[in-house]
Amino acid sequence: MLTKTLLPQSVAREIQAMIQSGQLKAGEKIPSQREFSQKFGISRASLREALLTLETLGLLKTEAGRGTFVAASDGTAGQTGNMAPWRYSESYSVFDVFQTRILLEGEIARLSAGRLSQAQLDKMEQATKTMEDCWAKQDLLANVDADLEFHSIIVSACSNTMLKALYQTVRDQVTETQRQPIPITDPERMRQSISEHRRIIAALKANNGDGACSEMEAHIRNTARCAGLQP
Rank of each mutant, 00 (worst) to 15 (best):
S214C: 06
T53Y: 11
L51N: 06
N160G: 03
I19W: 08
L51W: 08
G22I: 05
G81C: 10
K4C: 07
I200R: 01
M162V: 09
A17V: 02
M83W: 00
A142G: 03
E14Q: 15
G78L: 14
S152N: 14
E55H: 03
V70S: 07
M190L: 10
R198P: 10
E188S: 15
S195Y: 07
L24N: 02
T53C: 11
S89C: 04
L2Q: 10
S73P: 04
T223R: 15
K123P: 00
Q180T: 01
R179W: 13
Q23P: 02
I19A: 11
D96E: 13
A224E: 00
S46G: 10
I19S: 11
I184P: 08
Q20Y: 05
L104D: 03
E105V: 00
T177F: 01
I108M: 04
E176I: 02
L54E: 09
G81N: 12
D210N: 07
T175A: 11
A142I: 00
Q126T: 13
A72R: 15
A77F: 14
L148F: 03
P183Q: 06
E217P: 00
C213R: 15
L54S: 08
L103P: 02
A71T: 12
Y92S: 12
T161E: 12
C226F: 04
H151T: 06
L59H: 09
P8L: 04
R48C: 09
L60D: 04
A71M: 14
A17H: 06
Q99Y: 03
R110G: 00
Y88N: 11
G75M: 10
G65N: 08
Q168G: 07
R225A: 14
D145K: 05
G106Y: 05
E63C: 03
A12S: 13
S193P: 00
D172F: 08
K123S: 13
G211M: 06
R198F: 09
L166G: 09
E49F: 05
G58W: 04
G209F: 06
L52D: 10
M162G: 02
L59I: 04
L141V: 02
A64Q: 13
G211K: 08
R44V: 11
L54D: 09
N160S: 13
K25W: 05
M1Q: 14
E90R: 14
R101G: 09
R225V: 00
T80N: 12
D139S: 12
R199M: 12
G114C: 08
M162I: 15
E107T: 09
